[in-house]
Lab assay of single mutants.
Amino acid sequence: EPREEEAEKYIKRANGDYDKAQELAKKDGNEEIAEAIKEYKKR
């Protein structure tokens, strides 16, 4: 799923820090991806 791939990219950029990844996504205006990262975190 493209959303998950995007989320993974942010998580990698944030060195595995989900909260930081979420912030990066929000900064880029990717609210949807920020949500996907939140879902990811719950797994």
Rank of each mutant, 00 (worst) to 15 (best):
K42F: 10
I37G: 00
E31S: 09
Y18N: 02
Y18I: 05
L24R: 04
G16Q: 04
E31I: 13
E23C: 10
A14Y: 02
I37Y: 01
E32F: 09
I11M: 06
K27A: 15
G16W: 12
I11Q: 01
P2H: 14
A25N: 01
K9W: 15
E1V: 13
E32H: 13
E4Q: 12
D19W: 06
A34M: 09
N30Q: 12
K20H: 07
K26F: 11
A34K: 03
R13E: 10
N30A: 09
I37S: 01
E1Q: 12
R3I: 15
K9D: 10
N15K: 09
A36I: 15
K42Y: 11
Y40E: 04
E4M: 15
A21N: 00
R3V: 13
D28L: 03
A7R: 04
A34V: 14
E35M: 11
D28S: 04
A21M: 00
A25Y: 01
E23F: 09
G16S: 03
D17Q: 03
A21Y: 00
N15S: 06
E39K: 09
P2Q: 14
A7C: 13
K26P: 01
K9G: 10
A25T: 01
N30V: 05
K41Y: 07
E39Q: 11
K20W: 10
R13D: 07
K26S: 09
P2A: 14
R13L: 14
D28T: 03
A25D: 00
D19F: 06
K26R: 14
I37A: 00
E6V: 08
K27R: 12
E6Y: 06
K20S: 05
I11C: 05
K9S: 11
E31C: 12
E32I: 09
K27S: 11
A14N: 02
K41W: 09
G16L: 03
E8L: 15
Q22W: 15
Y18C: 05
K20C: 06
E1A: 13
K26E: 10
K38Y: 09
D17N: 08
R3G: 12
A25E: 00
E31V: 12
Y10D: 01
K27E: 12
D28Y: 05
I11D: 00
Y10R: 00
K9T: 08
K42P: 04
E35Q: 11
A21Q: 00
A21W: 00
E23W: 12
K26G: 05
E35L: 11
D19A: 07
E4P: 06
N15L: 08
K12Y: 09
N30L: 13
I11K: 02
D19R: 06
L24N: 05
A36Y: 15
Y18D: 01
P2I: 13
E31F: 15
E4T: 10
A34G: 05
Q22D: 03
E8R: 14
R3L: 15
E35G: 05
G16H: 05
K26D: 04
I37T: 01
G16Y: 11
A21K: 00
E6W: 11
K20Y: 13
G29E: 04
A14L: 02
E31N: 12
K9I: 12
G16K: 03
D28F: 04
L24K: 03
R13Y: 08
E23P: 01
I33S: 03
D28P: 00
K12T: 08
E35V: 07
A36H: 07
E5L: 14
I11H: 00
E31D: 13
E5F: 12
D19N: 08
Y40D: 02
N30W: 07
A25F: 01
E32P: 06
Y18G: 01
E39P: 00
I33H: 02
I33W: 03
A14Q: 02
R43I: 09
A25V: 02
Y18E: 02
R3W: 15
A34H: 04
D28A: 05
E4W: 15
I33C: 04
R3E: 10
A34S: 06
G16R: 03
E32Y: 10
K41F: 08
G16F: 10
I37L: 05
E32K: 11
K9M: 12
K26M: 15
E5A: 13
A36W: 15
N30G: 03
A7V: 15
K27P: 01
A36E: 07
I11G: 01
K42A: 12
K38I: 10
L24T: 04
K27L: 14
E1S: 14
A34T: 04
R13K: 09
D19E: 11
E31K: 08
E39R: 12
K42E: 11
I33T: 07
R13Q: 10
E39T: 07
K38R: 13
E4A: 11
E39N: 08
G16V: 01
A21T: 01
A36C: 10
R3Q: 11
D17L: 03
N15Q: 09
A14P: 00
K12M: 11
E39H: 07
R43S: 07
G16C: 07
P2T: 15
D19P: 02
N30I: 04
Y40G: 02
A7Y: 07
A7N: 02
E6C: 08
G16I: 01
N30R: 15
K9R: 11
K27H: 09
A14D: 00
K41T: 05
Y40A: 06
D17P: 01
Y40R: 06
A7G: 03
K9E: 12
D19I: 07
Q22L: 15
K42H: 10
K41N: 04
E32T: 09
Y10M: 02
D19K: 06
I11L: 12
K27C: 07
Y40M: 14
E31R: 07
N15T: 03
R43M: 09
K42V: 09
I37M: 02
K38E: 12
A34N: 04
E35P: 02
I37V: 04
Q22V: 15
A25I: 01
L24C: 03
K12F: 10
L24Q: 08
R13C: 14
A21F: 00
K20Q: 08
D28Q: 03
Q22K: 05
I33R: 02
K38V: 09
A7E: 04
A25H: 01
A25W: 01
N30S: 06
K20G: 04
A25P: 01
G29L: 05
D28W: 03
